[in-house]
Each structure stands twice: as C-alpha cells, then as structure tokens.
C-alpha cells in the first residue's frame, strides 16, 4: 500500500467518523442533514479511490456522478421534511420529535 492510498483511506475514515460524530452529537435537523452529507462525501472519495486502484476509472466516475445526483435528491427531501417540521414545531430540535413512542 503506497502513501497516497494510505492518505486517501485515512481521509475517508476521518470524514466518516466526523459525519457520524456530528450525527450523534447534534440535536439540530439541519446539522443532521449536513452530517449525512459529510459521510456520503467520504464514500465518494472511497469510490474514486477504488477506481484508481483497479484501473476501471470510467465505471467509478459514472458511479460517483450518479451518486452525487441521488444524494442531492435525498438532501432535498430531507430539507423539505425539516422545513415542514419547522412549520409544525416552531424549531428544528429533534428532542421535540416525541410523538412516536412504545
């Protein structure tokens, strides 16, 4: 394993950890969406890394572009739900989301 792949893998790992840490620590709906996006960006990096290692860069690029598109749609839907929740609750705190229990 050469130094470049080591750096990329470390960066990806750090980004995933950052995203998950943010997800666990925050109570804000918008920050949760950002946390998910950070984790997904790490995966994008991993896919590019995979393409570089195995030489099939074309497939990797296709995958990454498709993934970015899908990710944007997920972020839009998430933001839409967050906005509706803001209108219902008056804030974006996930501690307010306690209607469903059991």
């Amino acid at each position: 394993m050469n130094i470049v792949s080591a750096i990329i893998l470390t960066a990806a790992l750090l980004m995933i950890i950052a995203g998950m840490f943010c997800l666990v620590r925050t109570y804000n709906l918008i920050r949760i969406i950002i946390a998910i996006e950070i984790a997904m960006k790490a995966i994008t990096l991993l896919l590019v890394f995979a393409g570089a290692v195995n030489g099939n860069m074309a497939l990797s690029q296709t995958f990454v572009i498709t993934m970015i598109v899908i990710e944007v749609i997920v972020a839009v839907v998430a933001a839409g739900i967050a906005i509706s929740l803001y209108h219902k609750n008056g804030n974006v705190d996930i501690r307010e989301l306690t209607n469903l229990k059991g």
Partner: peptide, 16 residues
C-alpha cells in the same frame, strides 16, 4: 413527518 425523518436518517446511514 417525524416518522419520515427518522426513516430518512437511518436509511441514509444504511446507504452510506
């Protein structure tokens, strides 16, 4: 909305 947001977050983690 609450159920959908919970599903969305978990599903996004699963996708990742």
């Amino acid at each position: 909305l609450e159920g959908a947001f919970k599903y969305l977050v978990m599903s996004a983690i699963a996708s990742a």
